[in-house]
């Protein structure tokens, strides 16, 4: 077990290092903005005193390096600083600077929960569905079923998310008024209500992710079924069920876990467009809105959260596939 622990520790360290460097990249990118945040917030007619005040509030008068570490230190504690949009608003209302600023964390937290809910619903539908379809397509490969599924998934992967979203809205919300086309979720909603409003965006994500996951599962299983030990199991006269369950499945676990984690990582980016289509109050929509109004602290924070989730899922895939490798679990 020593080697496995060592490899996993290595991967974890590498993941944290990557995240650290990614945070530098994000911070540097944002600091490439022309001019000064403070000036762009207040406009050109602002008095030098007001600009200086805002600069002080936002910590813009410090060196980039110390600003970076302030930001990173805050981010680790869950404090992403103050939103510019709110700062802007505060300066207009003339209220005392500082007290009128809403923290980015306050803005993000509920939306983050909403996004997690959406992604989980999509994953709960997509994972079992795509694994089943993928295994079936692999078992009946080159049959009519396999070809139809191949064309359908290829089309689904290739289509932009908003196309699938509008088709679903067309069928399930407009032509047949079964589900709401707008997902206006608010706090204190009952769970079934919330689920009903989340279902269409979740289905859209499911369509995209299922196609990917199913194709990868199919490829992994076909690859596996071609290995000599599966032929050996068949030549030992074992029943097809036993060949699959006992000989294929334990070895398929690693690739399948990998496929699932990779696609959950994909889900994270898919969320952005889908949330905008359905006006779903999640982190993706917040991100897009902040990009449009250039609310940099929010953009920075969302970007870091997306990247962290992405890295974390890829890391999980990596570690799980290490754990399921018998060569590593039982060294010589």
């Amino acid at each position: 077990m020593g080697t496995v622990a060592k490899i996993i520790a290595q991967r974890l360290g590498l993941g944290i290092l990557t995240l650290f460097i990614v945070s530098i990249v994000i911070f540097t990118a944002v600091n490439m903005l022309p001019g000064d945040f403070a000036e762009s917030i207040l406009g050109q007619g602002a008095t030098p005193e007001a600009v200086a005040a805002i600069r002080r509030d936002l910590g813009l008068d410090q060196s980039p390096v110390s600003r970076y570490f302030d930001w990173l230190g805050g981010a680790v504690r869950g404090d992403f600083g103050s939103s510019f949009a709110q700062a802007n608003f505060a300066s207009f209302t003339g209220s005392d600077s500082g007290s009128g600023l809403t923290s980015v964390a306050q803005q993000i937290a509920p939306r983050f929960a909403n996004t997690m809910f959406l992604a989980s619903v999509a994953a709960i539908i997509a994972v079992p569905l795509s694994l089943t379809l993928g295994v079936l397509a692999a078992l009946f490969r080159n049959s009519v079923f396999d070809r139809v599924v191949n064309i359908a998934t290829l089309s689904s992967i290739s289509s932009p998310e908003f196309f699938l979203a509008y088709v679903l809205i067309l069928v399930f919300a407009v032509l047949n008024p079964w589900l709401p086309s707008l997902s206006n979720i608010y706090e204190g909603m009952s769970f079934p209500e919330r689920l009903e409003k989340t279902l269409l965006p979740a289905l859209t994500l499911t369509l995209v992710v299922t196609a990917h996951m199913m194709r990868m599962t199919r490829a992994a299983i076909i690859n596996l079924l071609a290995s000599p030990y599966i032929e050996m199991a068949r030549l030992k006269g074992l029943s097809p069920m036993r060949v699959i369950l006992r000989h294929a499945l334990p070895n398929a676990l690693a690739p399948i876990v990998n496929v699932v984690a990779l696609n959950l990582a994909y889900l994270i980016t898919g969320v952005v467009v889908v949330e905008v289509v359905f006006v779903y109050p999640g982190i993706g929509q917040l991100f897009v809105d902040s990009v449009k109004i250039r609310d940099i602290p929010v953009v920075q924070a969302c970007c870091l959260i997306f990247a962290a989730a992405y890295i974390l899922l890829n890391l999980t895939a990596d570690i799980l596939s290490i754990l399921s490798n018998p060569r590593l679990r039982h060294p010589r």
């Binding site: 990118a29 944002v30 994270i268 980016t269 990009v291 953009v299 970007c303 997306f306 990247a307 992405y310």
Partner: peptide
Amino acid sequence: AIPSLIFALLLMAIASA
């Protein structure tokens, strides 16, 4: 390590400035 659409949106925010 940064999801590409997210990265593109971030950079577009800067580019638009």
